[in-house]
Design a protein around this nucleic acid. Structure first.
Length: 547
RNA sequence: GCGCCAGUAGCUCAGUUGGAUAGAGCAACAGCCUUCUAAGCUGUGGGUCGGGGGUUCGAUUCCCUCCUGGCGCGCCA
């Protein structure tokens, strides 16, 4: 039982004494304003109606009935409309640091996932070009969401779905063929819906070098294979540069070769939710919340992308993933209802909200005050690798994660590359490096700072109390971020906590202070360093020891 | 027309799931380096939380409605 639980229990006992029902669960929260104490509860206000008394009267009665010693608080007072504010002694508050030091890299981990399997699918770019900034946002989000879930005890698989079948791949092959023909002396004719970028020309060069006997790319299937292979290689390099590792790549083409597409269609026909109209096969997705019925098999006999999509998600369910989370651009949001509808129509026990979607809005890249246009087809291009080369992996990660996915993101290249106070990622890393510097300069072996036998009451400056509270809140904070699949919460938390660290660093000197103070502050410094490092780790950002 | 998302300080955005006087960074102004990193710290000013209703002890947060912007609404993926 930690301190908060005993406070809550004591509060319930007091409430029952004054006539409240025993099943209340008082909400305790950190007041925004430190002058309001270390914890606060609104329980008196929620009891006003059932008890028929004024909130402040109830609060007074509660405090009178409260066993403050058992609750672990040094002071309780009524404030505002009926809040009860609690204050802890500095020693009680700061002794929590020992838990951080004991936990180390485990600090912030939770057990809510309970070892169940979750899949996070992200990036899933068509192999028709390099990864652009939108994929970058997905890569950062997906990787961090995976880490968040893993931190809460989920067994996470990161998967990349490879759309290596379909019309766009055919266009890719034709585009490379067009460049090959240009190269062989023909006029350049890029097909309708084809790709214009320079990378197409590079692939043509490689093909020509590899197959000198086919200079015009007549062997279209062979051209396709080379193009997909080369682009996969490029995308792998992009991902490696970004530090993202997938556990599995799932090929769309395998859904056809393994017969899963046909199986899905016959399964849907069997459950009776399909119908034919005008030579095409439809799924009655409107029965499952979609706003119109969807074509499964076109009049020309081929399937729409929606069918392999459903087949793919069937495999996720059958592979035993309790949760499937898809990270995608908001332009795909139209597909969410129909994939879910397809799974429901199969009537195989898939939960209604399966899969879950994390959709993110567009990214605009600003440079020198101007928007850099992204257009794959037109060939002007901002790739993930461009960004990483220009501003570094850590900054790219942070910038993609610092905004809520629902917000459009402006990526300011000049800000991201500036190594100054304006740049949040350097600010946070600097806080970490400074804490390391204390141990380095003081020649203190950090492994020997265990938090045992210290006088915690010396950490009683306002800066120290606030920092300690923030650090102790970290596990609850990670749990919330994981629950909401929102890494930006971690990014913002780190920025705020880094600010507290910098303030504390200036206000509270460590080395050369009297022994009890120095030892307690070393423990605090180490606890802050651990927490910052763990937080940066969840975002995939390095925690440098010096800068 | 319908659906999803957004609208908070001059700019870019948070807001701990309905709490107390709505926050941060940048930009502006004024200060701080013989002591652990000035890539830093301290202070000042800045608001009709898009508008209007409603729900209640209490709303930036929940509901309704309107306005503005983005995305989607294909037998493309």
């Amino acid at each position: 039982m930690n301190g908060l639980d005993s406070l809550r229990a004591a509060l319930v006992r007091a409430a029952v004494q004054i006539g409240a029902p025993a099943d209340i669960a008082p909400v305790l929260e950190r007041p925004r304003d430190p002058a309001h104490g270390d914890w606060a509860t609104n329980v008196a206000m929620t009891l006003a109606k059932p008890l028929g008394k004024k909130p402040r009267e109830i609060a007074d009665a509660l405090i009178a009935a409260l066993d403050t010693k058992a609750a672990g608080v040094s002071e309780a007072s009524v404030a505002g409309p009926g809040f009860i504010n609690f204050r802890l002694s500095t020693a009680d508050l700061a002794s929590g640091i020992a838990r951080i030091l004991q936990s180390g890299e485990q600090w912030g981990k939770g057990t809510g996932g309970n070892g169940r399997a979750a899949m996070v699918e992200f990036v899933s770019a068509n192999p028709t070009g390099p990864l652009h900034v939108g994929h970058g946002r997905q890569a950062a989000l997906g990787d961090s969401i995976s880490s968040l879930l893993a931190s809460q005890g989920w067994k996470v698989t990161r998967e990349f779905y490879y759309n290596d079948a379909g019309v766009q791949i055919a266009n890719l092959a034709l585009s490379v063929q067009a460049r090959l023909r240009e190269r062989a002396g023909d006029a350049l004719v890029i097909p309708e819906g084809g790709y214009h970028g320079d990378y197409i020309r590079e692939i043509a060069e490689r093909y020509a070098a590899e197959f000198p006997n086919d200079p015009r790319g007549e062997q279209l299937e062979q051209v396709r294979q080379v193009a997909v292979r080369e682009l996969r290689k490029e995308q792998d390099l992009d991902l490696r540069a970004f530090g993202v590792q997938f556990d599995n790549y799932y090929l769309e083409s395998s859904l056809y070769t393994d017969g899963l597409v046909d199986k899905t269609v016959s399964g849907l026909q069997k459950t009776g939710h399909t119908f034919e109209d005008d030579g095409a096969l439809f799924l009655r997705t409107t029965s499952f919340g979609d706003d119109k019925d969807r074509v499964m098999r076109k009049r020309d006999g081929t399937f729409t992308y929606f069918v392999p999509d459903v087949a793919y998600h069937v495999t996720k369910f059958e592979r035993g993933f309790t949760r499937a989370i898809n990270v995608q651009g908001a332009d795909h949001h139209g597909t969410t209802a129909r994939v879910r509808a397809g799974l429901q129509a199969l009537d195989m026990g898939v939960p209604k909200g399966y899969p879950e979607y994390v959709l993110h809005q567009m990214v605009t890249v600003m440079k020198s005050g101007e928007e850099v246009k992204i257009s794959k087809r037109a060939g002007s291009y901002v790739t993930v690798r461009d960004l990483i080369d220009e501003v570094g992996r850590d900054a790219v990660r942070y910038f993609f994660l610092m905004r809520k996915g629902d917000s459009q993101l402006v990526f300011d290249v000049d800000l991201a590359r500036s190594q100054s106070e304006e740049n949040p990622v350097y600010y946070i890393q600097m806080a970490h490096a400074r804490l390391c510097g204390i141990f380095r300069v003081g020649e203190v072996d950090a492994t020997r700072v265990t938090g045992e036998g210290l006088d915690w009451s010396v950490l009683d400056t306002p800066e120290e109390r606030e920092l300690v509270k923030a650090l102790l809140d970290w596990p609850a904070f990670v749990a919330t971020a994981a629950e909401n699949l929102e890494p930006h919460r971690v990014a913002n938390w780190l920025l705020e906590t880094a600010r507290m660290v910098h303030t504390w660093y200036h206000k509270c000197h460590v080395l050369g202070e009297p022994e009890p103070i120095m030892q307690a502050r070393l423990a605090l410094a180490k606890a802050a360093r651990i927490t910052l490092a763990n937080g940066l780790g969840l975002l995939g950002i390095s925690a440098p020891e010096r800068m």
